[in-house]
Design a protein around this nucleic acid. Structure first.
Lengths: 186, 186
DNA sequence: CGGTATCGATACTAGAGGTAGCGTAACTGG
DNA sequence: CCAGTTACGCTACCTCTAGTATCGATACCG
């Protein structure tokens, strides 16, 4: 029940190290019951933790799920000999991750929550989208590449174009997206 | 306040023809407040209708939104001289539709509701996905074509692969999808 | 030992989807 | 004109969920 000793430990009782337990319980509960029925009460119960403890660490259910996803995804594997290989690995890895128990459902749930919540949208975008894209851009050396299709198209298109409340996608981006789709369908 | 006279009109007071009004109020409310804050109470109020009237016609909020989307989308324009032209028209039309006020947000909302509700998922799939895909397949003459990217990839991938509760996508389909993505990114 | 922050537990508020019951209105058939 | 039937608006209600407040106990620091 101890935590990593920081240089200057803050006063008071330190937090018990149950983050990993809560994350596991979250994915488990979402996997078994779906996002909507995975209530914070149930997640807390599954983790053997009080609900108030969860709300002390994460400000909302959406923030909890987002943190859980960030933890579950971890850093993307950016390996491969060629540029094409790197992209292939990353995309396949993303698809596989999304298919893991609970992750897909959690993502879909928090995703739509984010549509209605600007703060959560920003959090989700910052936590999931940007580091990923930046890392891949760095690995590929070409910032104009549209990588990580699931993130860019699903989150990008849906959040920006469907979200309505956020800043809209530029028409040029929409056109580029449509062209990309058509090329894939050809 | 009358309705189209059916061959044998059922007994009792006929329903007032407010479906279109309710649909308009629904899109309007979703557009202004987002899916989550567009409560059935508020939609009913905006339509000048009692909430009970809405629940007499549609069994749930999800069913209402789905019906509203079906009404808003209408039949897809399947015109064009070449196969490529037909696909281009359909995809662009879909993208434009999704960008219309309220439609995107409504779709995103009902979509995630469907992830947690098998009945709604089936309804959404039957109402939006299948007729669309079938009509395009017919127009294009090649059933193996993966058309309507937004529907197939967004609904297909997310519902099937992320939904978890539904039947999973076949590995071959996932592979095909990944290949498609890679081709688009190349 | 005093100060401080976390812990579990309980109780609570506000808002949402959805249902039940009621008196009234609109139609059909006799 | 009247009985039967169904939709209407209205109100009250139930259940569930996110999120908050409070409290005594606990674990750590100086």
């Amino acid at each position: 029940m101890d935590r990593a000793t920081t240089p200057t430990r803050p006063a008071g009782r330190p937090r018990s190290s149950v983050d990993a337990t809560v994350f596991a319980a979250t994915l488990n509960t979402v996997h078994q019951l779906g996002y909507a029925h995975a209530t914070v009460d149930r997640i807390a119960g599954a983790a053997g933790v009080a609900k108030t403890t969860i709300y002390r660490r994460w400000p909302s259910k959406g923030a909890l799920i987002t943190a859980c996803l960030v933890d579950a995804f971890g850093p993307a594997p950016l390996t491969g000999a060629s540029r094409e290989e790197i992209m292939s690995t990353a995309v396949r890895w993303t698809a596989a991750k999304i298919g893991e128990p609970g992750i897909g459902a959690a993502f879909a749930g928090v995703f739509t929550d984010a549509v209605n919540d600007p703060a959560l949208r920003q959090l989700l975008s910052a936590q999931l989208q940007d580091p990923y894209r930046l890392a891949l851009q760095e690995a590929l050396g070409e910032p104009e590449n549209r990588v990580l299709f699931f993130i860019d198209v699903v989150v990008g298109t849906l959040l920006h174009r469907m979200g309505m409340t956020g800043e809209p996608m530029a028409d040029a981006d929409v056109d580029a997206l449509v062209e990309m789709v058509l090329r894939a369908l050809r």
